[in-house]
Amino acid sequence: MKSTSDGQLAEVWGDVVSRPHLGRAIIIGGVVSLVFYGIGLIFIAPLAVTPQVGRALAMLLGILGCLTGGAICARLFAPKRILSEELGAGTAEWQQQVLDQIEAEGGTIGDMADLPPEVVKELHETGLYDVFANRKSRAPAGGEA
């Protein structure tokens, strides 16, 4: 799945990037922002009422430059992520694992009789009623507390 044109991958600030792409993205992001800010300072700022407003306008253009630079990078460099549809979730096996984990952490599975009718209805609608109901009937047989 990893294409060779990506170069070395690395996890930076919480997500995977390609080192060469990151280097280029930093340069593009910096240069585009500076060009926009420079244009603002030279052409827009002198038109403003006060120098302070002029500089603020130039900064606003610079911020637009940041976003433009980001958009260019988004077009040039594809995300380093594989997005797949989760097939296991919702299957009986995964559902049992969730219940196992809840019990392992000391949580109770609980009794359907304790639930308000609206929650029982919600469980029926999501098709999870049997998952929890069957588990409850099995739990006492498994281990008497």
Binding site: L22, C66, A71, A74
Partner: peptide, 23 residues
């Protein structure tokens, strides 16, 4: 997750630092 690469997000922040700092 398909269109916005992390590189692009970092590039945007680098631009932000330069513009706000210089300003």
């Amino acid at each position: 997750s398909r269109k916005i690469s992390h590189e692009a997000i970092i590039g945007t922040f680098v631009g932000l630092v330069l513009v706000i700092g210089l300003w």
